[in-house]
Amino acid sequence: MSTRKTRRQVWGLVGRYTLLAVLSIVVLFPIYITVVNALLTGDQLGSRTPTLFPLHPVWENFSKAWSDGHFGHYMVNSFVVTLLIVTGQLITAVFAGYAFAFLEFPFKRTLFVVFLATLMVPFEVTIIQNLTTVTDLGIYNSYAGLAIPFMATGFGAFLMRQAFLGVPRDLQDAASLDGYGHWRFMTRVAVPLVRPSVAALGVFAFLSAWNQYLWPLLVTKDDQFRTVQVGLKQLAGSTIGDIPLRFAGAAIAVVPLAILLIVFQKQLVRGLTAGAVKG
């Protein structure tokens, strides 16, 4: 009886792992085939008997996408813009969150509603005038034009406020007895205590900034400032005869986020589950 049960358990286990493995293959297949196709020649790619494993990988496709396709340059642009946005968002969110959680001031409620109201306006609604504004400010086709509009979000401020509200009030009283002003309390006590939330916001901001498409498309006019996402469109448009290069470009564009996902999975999950609220 007990051996039979064990055998059933073993088969159950095999079944479970098989199901998980099959689903993993289905989910990962588009990425796998992208990498494979990026390593093929154009002829192999067009062949009606597809190559599912490249025996003679054409690594030049990657270097061609990187240099001729300007992907090296696009990557630098994406990193600069993303880091500007993440830094800006973290600073504005910590500042505003701290004010809403720890300070008393006139119009606090009204201002909080103003912050929440920003969540209701999708960026797509504001592009018409923003394009004019950015041009008038002289930051069209520049890092500033790409980054500044996204350096503050209502969501970030809200997330940090919630985190700061979890910091015990006694700590603030104790710090103030020690002669800590608000500034020192914020930077030395409050922010270190809510580090997990800061990290979640940072990773979430990185993900959304890196993946932006509409605004970079509107606000850049040449390769000097194009980001990776918009670069994919350039690559698709300019190398019509050379399809493997498109796959190489797509594979390159994923690498930074794949690393982010593996290293900061926990923070990313936290940020996404909270961040989806933003819609």
């Binding site: 085939i33 469109k233 994923v254 794949a258």
Partner: peptide, 13 residues
């Protein structure tokens, strides 16, 4: 894993 991809990447693939 697909959160590591962007909509542009998915579209190109």
């Amino acid at each position: 894993s697909t959160v590591a991809t962007s909509i542009a990447v998915a579209a190109v693939i």
